[in-house]
Each structure stands twice: as structure tokens, then as C-alpha cells.
Design a binder for these strands. Structure first.
Length: 572
RNA sequence: GAUCCGUUAGCUCAGCAGGUAGAGCAUCUGCCUUUUAAGCAGAGGGUCCGGAGUUCGAGCCUCCGACGGAUCACCA
């Protein structure tokens, strides 16, 4: 392993600590009696507090001034300044613990435990005067040094790639990142409390599913060896939760990790979290009220107000939210009324609006496209869009007043879909027919259409009470409520391309696939950057390129024959 | 997948008509007992993303590739 100078210095310090009889990674626990935040909050009010404290944390800053030093340690609650004075740390003749260990062998990034008392410096900063300290863990890599003065941050650690790949470093040096994830936990906690208080049961359902149902999305597929069958990572848990409603629970919910094998961008990660809930004897009007109350409560729990700033916009989550039908929305923003229109008529409208269509799109998908293109972005304040066409909602009950529509709503906030809910379809005959329609879409080429889950049909044939269900994207909710521009900022470990050290490709790599030595030396210069790029080319094209290169550079080697190239391409 | 932009010291970044690399912080050495982006004096540290080409000479120009970002496309 290639070590930088600073890493070598730290490893040397580690050895020296051991030589001095100090274990840089001691096994025993270190008793902590106070945290940075408590001291900073309480000491100014009562100077008798914290006169014998024991604290632990990571050294984040050091200012050595000869026989005295200031340092900052960071614990889970924040940072606090420490004051080290040589003759207090080392009352006797032996000054090693200060001169050698503290000043030379400890570094920014190391964990220490300290004992001491709180006081306030001449500069007015609350500080712990250290009387004893102990090395708890030595750090072997230098941290990025982020400094701050008057609210201005210097040398901030901001490169997204590094931050996501090494989130631990991001969390160490970027306080606001740590805070975002605390808020994420608070949001989930608040939601859980809301649902539990209503008496609904928090449940867990399979992530590995034989049939990936409950949503329209491409699944990840895997294989179970013992059963010798494919299994899918769930794209939704809806069909399982409804089985539980059939089973007799009145209300169930699950914070579920779902997996969708689709594109990645700042709104999509292959795995993401949704909360889905189902409650018996309710309809989607009730669910709208419940949803707006739940979100209003979460926002108040988090901020103490319903109004928050998201990007440029101020959003008010005060219930009730506005309501609008999807066809009404389309009419409002495009002027076209699609009520009772046929697939062909809608396709024609889409064309007029310059929306790309393809033959695999059914009526529902077309309407969805038009809405997504022309309307969705306009809904900044929380708005329920309701009454979707039946074709795009195969699990949703038909509208009580219009057979072509369903009792469905989506909640739009800040121009994005946040939640999705139905009066659930509990008519088993209709459900079977709707699955069949999906099958036809599948055959038409829509690779997101749903599979038929016969066991689910069997379940609701036993009878499912009228039920309303709702799913809400937790990651998107957290993005919204913490004002983060990308999903990667609210996931600790967003999916990334594997980190690979770009191993330089050399002539040897070509020799390995059978290229003769004389040609291996020239093949990269001739335009083939890697064995892979060679293998993707046609033998004749390779021959032309190589011989062209030979001629141009007047190489004193025989012209390459096509047979030899064919042999390279066959090698594995 | 497309287009544009980027990749230089541990971190943040500079660099020029193409002439063998700089700053601040961090690190190391010395000084300094209440400092705070501590200070002062000195030192070390780089396959300038990889490869090829043009050139007497490339961090800089050209081509190929890797990785990343932004925008768009795809996407409940």
C-alpha cells in the first residue's frame, strides 16, 4: 500500500505510543459523564456545574503554544474546547504525556477521553481544563481540515463523489450533513408515532417476492438456489399489506425498502423507502384528510410551524390541502378536456402538445404523460390530484360517479409526486379483469405493466373490507422537509458505481489475450485503448488500422494477417 | 444514452502564447502558559486521472479511454 507522508508519520506515532506503554486502542470502556452540548448550554447559567467531568471525542483542532494548548474535541452532540497545560497534565518531573504524547504523537482525528473542569477563557469561550487524558483510538488517515470564521467556511469538503463514497468523513467534518440525517430519523419517528397513536399495526412483509406486484416498475431479479426459482426484490408491498387487511387487522403500515431497476438521478436511487398504510372501512376522502393531518404534524414536530422554505419556494403544509382532478388539471394547464375521450383522441392531443408517444402507451399512460409534462411541475403548494383514469390504476376502485375513473389521489408538492393513495379495489372479479388488462399491456411492450398475483386474487375472493391505502415516499419527504436538492443527500449510502482504481492498461494486457509481442507494443498507439475495445471491433477493421499504422510509421515488422487477428478475437 | 464542464500536494484551489509546478490550510523542526481560520521562523511533500499523438520541449494543444458533476432523455 502506498502511504502518504502524513500516513507514515501517524503510523510512526502509533509505534512510539506502544513503546511508551500506551495502548492506542484500549479495550476497556471509558466512562462519559457529560456531552459538549450540555456543557455549552448549562455552564453559563451555573458555574458550579461540570467541575469534575469526564468526556470523550475526536480531536478536531489543535493550537499548541509551548507549555499550554487548546484543542477541540467533537462528540455526538457537538464540539467543545479543551485546555491542556503542561504542568497540570504532568505534575512531576516527567513531561512525556504533554511534550511527547499530546504535542507530537496525537493528531487531528484521534479519539481521546479527558477528565477536567469547565471554565471560561479570556476570550469568553467555554472550555474544559484538562487534568488527565487517555488515548482511546489513533487515527491513521488525515481528515480534511475544514475551518470556519464568522460563519464563513474555509476549505469545505464538498465534492459529492467523495462525500457519498466516504460518508463517514462527510459526517465527521460537515455538521449540516449529520443534522440532515437526524432530521430524517425525526420525520420517520413522527410519522410512526402518528400511525401508532391511531392504533395501526406496524408490520413487516417479504422483500424477496416470487411475483413483484403492487406497482408498475422494473424489478431486480435474483435466484434462490434451494428452491431453484427466481425471486424478485420487491417494488412495493401493497399486495402483502392488503392480505393482512383480509386477515382481519383494521390498520397496518410498513416502512418498506423497495427496489426498482430503473434510471438513477437526483430523484431516484435503486433502493428507496416508502411508507405504505392500509386502513379498513375507509375511502380515499378519509385518506386525504389523514394524509394532510399526518404531514402537517410532521412538519410542526420538526420546525414548530407549517411554513418552510424549499429552494426558492415557501411551502405551507397547513391542512387542508387543495384538491384538483387530473383531467381538471390537464384542462387547466393545456386547455384540452379529455373527459370520455378515446385512446386515439388522447394520443392526438399528446401530439399537439409535443409530447412523445409510442404505440405501447395505453390511455392511462398517455394521460399520465400529459399530466407529468404539462401540469405536475406547477403544483408547488401541497395539492391532491385525484380521480385518475382506470387504465393507469389497476389496483384502485372505480370512481363512484364515473366508471372510467378511479378513486385515486396523488399528493403533489414542490412540483413532484410525494404520495399516492386509493380507495382500494376489493371486487375480486373486477380485480381479475384489471390484471388481465395489464397482461395485455405487457404483451404490447410495456415492460412495467403488472404481473398477475393469483394468490392475491384468492385472498380478496375471501373478502376484503372496503379499504383505503396510501404510500408515501420517505426519501422525497425528507428531501422536501430538509430542503435537500437530491436523494443522495438524504441516504447515508446512495448507490454509486463501484470505486475502481483506474489500472493503467499496458502492452502486457494485450499479450494476455494472445496478441503477439511485436504488435502489442503498437496496438494502443494504433487506436485500441484496451483489449475490450479491440474485441468489440471487426477483424478486418483491426487489420486495416494496424497495417495503416505500420505504413504510416514505417514500422519494420511484417504486415498483420487477418488469420492472426481472428485468433486474438477468439481467445478468452 | 446525449451534450457541456471538470480531474494539479492529505484538503480547498491557482497556474500559461506550450519552456520541468504554486498558494493557504494540513504535515515535519524550532519558539511561544487563556488561544480561536492562534502567531512567528524554517523544511518536506506531486506518475499535474491513464494512454497515444503533435512539438526541440505538453499540466496546458489533438485523439482515445477512465472517473465525476450539471443539463437533457429514460423513469410512478
Amino acid at each position: 500500500m502506498q502511504l502518504s507522508e502524513q500516513e507514515i508519520v501517524r503510523r510512526e506515532a502509533l509505534k512510539e505510543l506502544r513503546k511508551l506503554g500506551i495502548n492506542p486502542y484500549p479495550p476497556e470502556m471509558f466512562e462519559v459523564s457529560a456531552y459538549a452540548k450540555e456543557v455549552l448550554e448549562q455552564f453559563p447559567g451555573d458555574n458550579t456545574l461540570f467541575q469534575e467531568v469526564s468526556m470523550a471525542g475526536r480531536i478536531m483542532n489543535r493550537r499548541v503554544m509551548g507549555a499550554a494548548s487548546f484543542a477541540e474535541i467533537m462528540d455526538d452532540t457537538g464540539r467543545i474546547q479543551l485546555y491542556f497545560k503542561r504542568d497540570d497534565i504532568c505534575p512531576g518531573e516527567d513531561k512525556t504525556m504533554y511534550n511527547t504524547v499530546f504535542k507530537r504523537l496525537l493528531d487531528i482525528g484521534d479519539f481521546i477521553g479527558i477528565k477536567g473542569f469547565a471554565f471560561i477563557t479570556k476570550m469568553g469561550e467555554i472550555t474544559i481544563h484538562v487534568t488527565q487524558y487517555k488515548v482511546l483510538a489513533k487515527s491513521l488517515r488525515p481528515l480534511p481540515i475544514v475551518k470556519e470564521k464568522d460563519g464563513k467556511v474555509y476549505d469545505a469538503f464538498t465534492d459529492p463523489d467523495q462525500r457519498y463514497r466516504q460518508r463517514y468523513v462527510d459526517l465527521i467534518v460537515n455538521d449540516h450533513v449529520k443534522k440532515t440525517f437526524v432530521q430524517r430519523a425525526q420525520i420517520i419517528q413522527s410519522m410512526r408515532n402518528f400511525l401508532s397513536a391511531k392504533g395501526y399495526l406496524e408490520v413487516e412483509t417479504p422483500i424477496l417476492q416470487p411475483i413483484p406486484g403492487g406497482a408498475a416498475a422494473r424489478p431486480f431479479i435474483t435466484h434462490h438456489n434451494a428452491l431453484n426459482m427466481p425471486l424478485y426484490l420487491r417494488i412495493a408491498n401493497e399486495l402483502y399489506l392488503k392480505r393482512l387487511i383480509v386477515g382481519g387487522y383494521e390498520g397496518v403500515f410498513e416502512f418498506a425498502k423497495d427496489f426498482r431497476n430503473e434510471g438513477m438521478d437526483r430523484f431516484h436511487n435503486p433502493e428507496f423507502t416508502q411508507m405504505e398504510m392500509y386502513v379498513a372501512y375507509k375511502d380515499y376522502f378519509w385518506m386525504m384528510e389523514t394524509t394532510e393531518q399526518m404531514i402537517e404534524k410532521i412538519v410542526i414536530d420538526l420546525y414548530g410551524t407549517t411554513k418552510i422554505k424549499v429552494g426558492e419556494n415557501e411551502i405551507d403544509f397547513k391542512a387542508p390541502f387543495k384538491r384538483q382532478t387530473i383531467l381538471g388539471a390537464i384542462e387547466e394547464f393545456t386547455g384540452f378536456n379529455l373527459t370520455h375521450k378515446s385512446e386515439e383522441e388522447i394520443r392526438a392531443v399528446a401530439k399537439k402538445l409535443n409530447i412523445e408517444t409510442d404505440p405501447s402507451m395505453g390511455k392511462g399512460k398517455l394521460i399520465d404523460e400529459i399530466f407529468g409534462e404539462k401540469c405536475e411541475g406547477n403544483y408547488i403548494q401541497p395539492t391532491f390530484i385525484m380521480d385518475y383514469p382506470v387504465e393507469m390504476s389497476p389496483l384502485c376502485k372505480r370512481h363512484r360517479k364515473n366508471e372510467e375513473l378511479t378513486e385515486r389521489f396523488e399528493l403533489m408538492v414542490n412540483g413532484k409526486e410525494l404520495a399516492n393513495a386509493y380507495t382500494e379495489l376489493n371486487d375480486p372479479i373486477d380485480q381479475r379483469a384489471r390484471f388481465k388488462e395489464q397482461l395485455q399491456l405487457l404483451e404490447k411492450g410495456d415492460d412495467e405493466a403488472m404481473f398477475i398475483d393469483y394468490d392475491f386474487l384468492r385472498a380478496i375472493e375471501y373478502g376484503m373490507p372496503p379499504t383505503s391505502g396510501m404510500g408515501i415516499g420517505i426519501d422525497r419527504l425528507v428531501m422536501l422537509l430538509t430542503n435537500q436538492p437530491s436523494i443522495q443527500e438524504v441516504l447515508f449510502f446512495p448507490q454509486m458505481k463501484p470505486e475502481q482504481k483506474a489500472k493503467p492498461i499496458t502492452a502486457d494486457d494485450f499479450i494476455k489475450i494472445g496478441v503477439s509481442k511485436i504488435w502489442a507494443e503498437h496496438i494502443m498507439a494504433a487506436g485500441f485503448a484496451s483489449p475490450d475495445s479491440l474485441k468489440e471491433s471487426k477483424a478486418t477493421a483491426i487489420q486495416q488500422k494496424l497495417n495503416g499504422y505500420r505504413k504510416k510509421n514505417k514500422l519494420n515488422i511484417p504486415a498483420i494477417q487477418i488469420d492472426e487477428i481472428i485468433k486474438w478475437l477468439e481467445e478468452d
